[in-house]
Design a binder for these strands. Structure first.
Lengths: 179, 179
DNA sequence: GTCTATATTGTGATAGAC
DNA sequence: GTCTATCACAATATAGAC
């Protein structure tokens, strides 16, 4: 069984993703994690501490992913854009959850988010050998990620189908081939 | 002098952009607009009504912009990506403000946002004559917009310089030329 | 390590004077 | 049209029992 701390962070993530930051109260998180409010406050003495815990989880998961970008057989550009399609992985969940916190001005979340963007851009630039190309690729991936995860719950606007993703990856290939 | 309703919406926007949704309380908006809470509630009888008012402003501004996309001398693709650079225009401010509301799950905001994305994609597709191309261009613009406006206040991570924007527009030109 | 109170403050909304 | 109370409720956090 996962530790109480992990279960609490899982529940915190879940509510942030599905219902937004405002719904992610200490009360709601405690109930979802199956502990009392007092029990939650034993593990995370303040809400800020809980936010901090989630940020640390995100940074660790991103560092792993940055390594994978450089090692992807299909190439860094394709890997980045393809994995920018939200699939509810632990990394995806952590990203979206922390993104919600950033939008509310939580300083720790903003710092963590800024740092992971840097990690990705640097990994792309190193693998592709061109900064403008790395930026164009990153923007496509970010735009994709953004449109898929922006809306709370399942109210996504422009869901990308498999066919559209293939067409998009061809556009990416064209850019890489040109540079 | 602007009407009281407009001043209230301006202040609502301002706080949403700079401090996030949580800070945009009725109290804070009233104070920033220079009216009392009771005064505010005369114009907008509930917070939901105030949200609705901002959404209507956004939709009107976007409809104007969609027309400009089709008429841009530099071409629709260049126009879209270039104007995706946040410049604090009335449209930019409305977009970011409503974006903050979407992230909190306000249904009216989600609906308005979904609608304006549709307007833009359709305008691009019509002007460029290709759906995959329109999507790739839109994603680059959205990614750009997203990274520039995602963070509250001025805590922007990957601010794009003029030189970088030119390099990016060249990538866009390459895509358009290929299709 | 987890619980039940409870204190304290912030937030949306109402009532009614001017 | 705008104001000053004031209410009802929700949110973070504390204290102390088990």
């Amino acid at each position: 069984m996962a530790s109480a701390k992990d279960r609490i962070l899982d529940s915190f993530e879940d509510i942030l993703i599905k219902e937004g930051e405002r719904a992610a109260t200490m009360d709601a998180v405690a109930a979802a994690a199956g502990v009392s409010k007092g029990g939650l406050l034993y593990h995370f003495p303040s809400k800020e501490a809980m936010v901090e815990g989630l940020c640390q989880r995100l940074e660790a998961l991103t560092e792993d992913d940055a390594v994978k970008i450089g090692a992807a057989p299909e190439g860094a550009a394709r890997y980045y854009v393809r994995t920018s399609h939200y699939v509810d992985s632990p990394l995806d969940r952590a990203i979206v959850a922390v993104a919600r916190l950033v939008q509310q001005g939580h300083p720790a979340a903003a710092h963590a988010f800024s740092r992971i963007q840097d990690l990705w851009l640097k990994a792309l630039e190193e693998a592709l050998g061109s900064r403008p190309l790395a930026q164009a690729v990153k923007l496509m991936g970010d735009g994709l990620y953004y449109s898929a995860t922006f809306f709370s719950g399942n109210a996504q606007p422009a869901d990308v189908t498999e066919v559209e993703m293939e067409a998009l990856l061809e556009q990416v290939d064209a850019l890489v081939a040109r540079n």
